[in-house]
């Protein structure tokens, strides 16, 4: 029974598998999984999640960034004049819910800001498609106390990604002067009042006549970005556009 060629065969197999391992070092196909749902996918986010959360075919309200259902370009609240006054256009990347909300939470609260880099390409191309190219990109600041506690500013990470990919200068020029209650804990009216004169421009910065992208993670009432835009406009910015990762959907009665 014990015939010789079998041994030779196993040596060949070993050699071949070693050769294969070496080859894999050069031609390496990474198995990819969707960042949001974890299912196998060819790109960073699978087509299902892309449709579900990023809704590229849906309009966003140009003054507050909400996702709209009915094909118009402004939500009813903003038409009544409740929206922010100093922003020229707002766009949001996705619908703030489900797995996308979880993803943003992972970035913000669970110490994984590097996750954003996987989406850098998608974020940049969406932003530049929706907004006119600016002179500089400005993140919404955190209060120094909160920054010291969290260790990073997620808006800053996002802004620097956009700036890096587009080759536009990144300027961290805003200052948060009041350590406010987190907006997430408040209702609409409180949010607006909470932020009154909470922002300022860093001393010695000139933005006279510049077009600016303002970058934040989530927009709900647009109170934060509205307040920041007011400061920027006050110091002479010509246009202020805003880009955010997530926003709510307009609820129609």
């Amino acid at each position: 029974m014990n015939w010789q060629p079998k041994e030779d065969f196993s040596v060949t197999v070993k050699l071949l598998s070693a050769a294969k391992e070496i080859a894999e070092m050069f031609w390496h196909e990474e198995s990819k999984y969707c960042l949001l749902c974890g299912m196998p996918s060819s790109s960073g986010v699978c087509s299902n999640c892309n449709k579900l959360y990023f809704c590229p075919e849906q309009q966003r309200c140009f003054s507050c960034g909400k996702l709209l259902e009915n094909g118009s370009n402004q939500c009813q609240d903003c038409r009544k004049g409740h929206g922010p006054k100093f922003l020229d256009k707002v766009t949001t990347f996705g619908y703030y819910g489900g797995a996308w909300k979880q993803f943003i939470h992972n970035i913000k609260y669970k110490g994984q800001p590097y996750l954003l880099f996987a989406l850098a390409q998608d974020l940049t191309s969406w932003a530049i498609k929706q907004l006119p190219p600016p002179d500089c990109i400005v993140p919404v600041p955190l209060h120094p106390n909160r920054l010291a506690l969290r260790g990073f500013n997620q808006a800053e990470v996002l802004a620097s990604i956009l700036a890096g990919y587009l080759g536009i200068s990144f300027k961290d020029i805003l200052l948060r002067t009041k350590d406010t209650t987190p907006q997430a804990a408040l209702g609409r009216q409180e949010r607006l009042a909470n932020l009154k004169s909470a922002f300022d421009l860093k001393p010695g910065v000139l933005i006279e006549g510049e077009e600016i992208w303002l970058v934040d993670d989530v927009v709900t009432t647009a109170a934060t970005i509205g307040e920041c835009a007011e400061v920027l406009k006050k110091f002479g910015a010509r246009k202020v556009y805003a880009f955010c990762l997530g926003a709510g959907r307009e609820k129609l009665e």
């Binding site: 110490g111 994984q112 800001p113 590097y114 920054l147 010291a148 969290r150 260790g151 990073f152």
Partner: peptide, 10 residues
């Protein structure tokens, strides 16, 4: 995974 933070590398 390393990333840059307020206190240097984190």
């Amino acid at each position: 995974q390393r990333w840059p933070s307020y206190y240097g590398e984190a």
